[in-house]
């Protein structure tokens, strides 16, 4: 599974993209976040307030309870500010 980080989530985790193999049973975005938070202090800080974190699975907007599986691309980013 590929995990991407943008804007301040990239800065806090210190990485823009990582290939991860979460344990079996990590089948929702929320479970993935819980597992990712254990990877480093930066990850824990990046996910400390989920109200300001948005997620996309395979380049489509998703939610905390959206399903995920091996091979998916999961991206985390703040609320968008383009235009």
């Amino acid at each position: 599974m590929e995990v991407l980080y943008f804007a301040w989530l990239r800065e806090r985790t210190g990485i823009s993209q990582e290939t991860v193999q979460p344990p079996d049973g990590t089948d929702t975005v929320e479970k993935l976040i819980t597992w990712l938070k254990g990877r480093s202090a930066g990850h824990a800080e990046a996910f400390s307030d989920l109200d300001v974190v948005r997620v996309a699975v395979n380049e489509e907007y998703a939610k905390l309870d959206s399903p995920i599986s091996a091979g998916d691309e999961v991206a985390f980013f703040p609320p968008v500010t383009g235009g």
Binding site: F6, A7, A56, Y61, A75, F77, V80, T81, G83
Partner: peptide, 30 residues
């Protein structure tokens, strides 16, 4: 189109000001 792209297109703005850099927060008005 302008209203929707501001809240849906995945862009993020990093401003450089005299106080340093900061990520622009999304606006409730948008």
């Amino acid at each position: 189109l302008v209203d929707w792209l501001k809240t849906k297109a995945p862009f993020w703005k990093l401003e450089e000001t005299s106080d340093g850099t900061r990520w622009v927060a999304s606006r409730a008005t948008d």
